[in-house]
Amino acid sequence: MSTLLDILSSIGMWEAVLRIATPLIFGTLGVLLCERVGVLNLGIEGIMTFGAMVGWLTVYSGGDLWTGMLAAAAAGALFGLLHAMMTVPLGLSQHVTGLGITLFASSLSYYIFRLAVPTASSPPTVTPFKPLPIPGLSEIPFVGPVLFSQTPPTYLALAVVALLAFGLYRTPLGLALRMTGENPHAADAQGLDPIGLRIGAIMAGSALMAMGGAFLTLAAFNSFFPTMIQGRGWICVALVVFASWRPARALLGALLFAFFDAFQLRLQTVVDGVPYQLFLMLPYLLSILALILMARRARVPQALMQPYRRGER
């Protein structure tokens, strides 16, 4: 019991929560943005992989860290464009297109990675983002190191939450995006362009996903290796349901999830006799549990997964 308290009262554990949550925040917001306009983006797992690879490769070949993030975002937007062209104007199956993008983007990442680093037993490393303590705030006991001594991309992720929450609910563009996801026919009748809005939102959402991937190689770790995303993308898709498609709740979901992850990591080291695989299963089982709890309660965008072709019902 006292070890549990020790873990829960350690600064290191709470510091880790925000760090573990960052890629999930980016990814969840990305999925949320796509689904808010009515498009399921199962490309996330591959787009995160590609973002992780491009971010790492940019820095490895001499670019600075923010250039790496930007390159990842741009690459993500391009895969978003591919996804959007197939699912929006052509109206192809969003399930299959997304999975196709995931398989294509991840195998392409491995291919490019192997071309760049043909023979290396251990993956080459880059110097990752350093924590940036915010002057003044970071000196507050406990709260300071936990919230205000994170790496810059973490602050960016939090800013994006605020931006997206404000943008979706307080601006005309946000209203147009939400309307497209609820009823594209009505949006069209209002003189909006549902096709364009969907394409734009998917590109922006995919850019966010890729930045989540890049965070892993440029801040959380310092190298790229195949299968490093480990289902984080799929967890983000589950978190969006848990968040009932609202940005602030998405942040809450990602934090809650990261809390359990950080907790189980530390629990592993103190609890004997329980196989470590059971701990590793927890994130996936928790995601499934979150889905069970929220499946019937969440408010799904009404036009989710319904293709829209003008003049066709």
């Binding site: 399930h95 289902g231 695989q277 590793l280 299963m281 996936y284 499934i288 069970i292």
Partner: peptide, 19 residues
């Protein structure tokens, strides 16, 4: 419960390999 099977089957892949 009305849980979409896409995500659950995907997540169970990881659980199965760990098992």
């Amino acid at each position: 419960f009305g849980v979409d099977e896409v995500v659950t089957t995907l997540l169970l892949n990881f659980v199965a390999v760990l098992f």
